[in-house]
Amino acid sequence: MGVLLELKDLTKAYDTYAVVDHLNLTINEGELRCLIGPNGAGKTTTMDLITGRQKLTGGKVIFDGREINGLKEHQIVRRGIGRKFQVPAVFRDLSVRENLEVAFNRTPNPFSNMLMFFNRTDKKRFDEIVELSGLGDRLDHKAGFLSHGETQWLEIGMVLTQNPRLLLMDEPTAGMTEQETLKTSEIFKRLKGAHTLVVVEHDMTFVREIAETISVLHLGKLLAEGPMHQVENDPKVREVYLGAEGISDAA
């Protein structure tokens, strides 16, 4: 399996203070990578830099062999990078169905979309997403009326609808109940393999459940990388996460 995403000396600095500091990271095709680290480690900023939401001050983002830094957000999305935000972002005034239909981006051209109506949507793919996100009986409800967990699943569904090659998920279980977290990890296990995922997460139970490789960030730098058992016994990681208690209790 080839390399899908490569960050080379990625840097984001405000004046002299680097939020992301010469970060090197390689994500292989088909991998599920968890990005963890204490608050202020630069996890969300790293996602912002990959997706073009913030401009980097140094280094390179290479996606599928091509440099993508400098492209606009929507152009990066069209290259095949989907993103779920930390605070769930759905269209609250639109129905669940409309939310998913908007996410079906077959053409970005406004004039072609004037001639497009939803009954022609790709039914099979649509049903798959609805089944995966478990929102089948909610399709005609306004997204604003969904519960917090359902809103998160809807956004995950919307990102999946685009069929991106790389999925960036920023805290997909934030604010979820235990049951909801469990359902979310089921969704992620099904995505594994078919998609390449990078997941930022604080919930260690969830990380333990889904992760293959974990990258630990601290103060904008890569602190450690490897499978769960290796990372959680790493003394540097233990120190960063509340002294000797280790990351297992940090969540």
Partner: peptide
């Protein structure tokens, strides 16, 4: 209408 709701999300749908 989606843009009215959340322009950023529309942008990140490509």
């Amino acid at each position: 209408r989606a843009t009215r709701d959340d322009a950023e999300r529309v942008r990140f749908l490509g």
